Amino acid sequence: MEELKDRELIFVFTGPDGSGRKTVADSVGQTFGMAKVLSYATRKPRPGEVNGQDYHFITPELYDQLEAGGELIESVMLGSNRYGLRGKDIKLSFEKNGCIYLILNPEGAEKLKQYYGDRVIRLFIYADRPTVEERQRKAGLAEDVIADRLSRYEADMAYQSACEHAFENYDLAHTVFDITNTLENYLQRNLEERD
Score class of each variant (00 low, 15 high):
R43M: 08
L104Y: 03
D195A: 10
M34F: 14
T180V: 15
Y83S: 06
Y116S: 06
Q188K: 13
S75C: 08
Y159S: 09
D156P: 03
T59Y: 01
Q65L: 15
T131R: 05
Q53G: 02
C163P: 05
T131F: 00
Q53C: 06
L66A: 05
E154H: 06
G108D: 12
L92E: 15
D171E: 15
L187T: 03
I90E: 02
A147I: 02
S151D: 04
D26Y: 14
L85I: 14
L9M: 14
A25L: 08
V132Q: 04
N185C: 00
R82L: 01
I121P: 01
D89L: 08
R189G: 07
G70W: 12
Q53F: 11
R194Q: 09
P16F: 10
R189K: 13
F57S: 01
A166Q: 11
K44R: 10
K138H: 08
L104G: 01
A25M: 10
K36C: 05
S161V: 15
T59Q: 11
L112W: 00
D118P: 10
E193S: 09
E3P: 09
P106H: 07
G79K: 00
R7T: 09
I179N: 07
S151I: 00
I73F: 02
N51S: 11
R135G: 08
Y126T: 13
D195E: 14
G69A: 15
D54K: 05
I73W: 09
T14S: 15
V76S: 12
S161N: 01
I103Y: 01
K5S: 12
F13K: 12
R86K: 15
D178M: 14
A147H: 06
K91Y: 09
A162Y: 06
R21C: 12
D171H: 14
R137G: 00
S151E: 06
G33L: 06
R46C: 00
A41N: 01
D148S: 10
L102D: 02
Q160H: 03
D6M: 10
T59K: 05
Y186S: 10
D6E: 13
L123G: 03
A109K: 00
Q160G: 04
E61N: 09
L112C: 08
R129T: 09
A109H: 02
E134P: 02
Q160C: 08
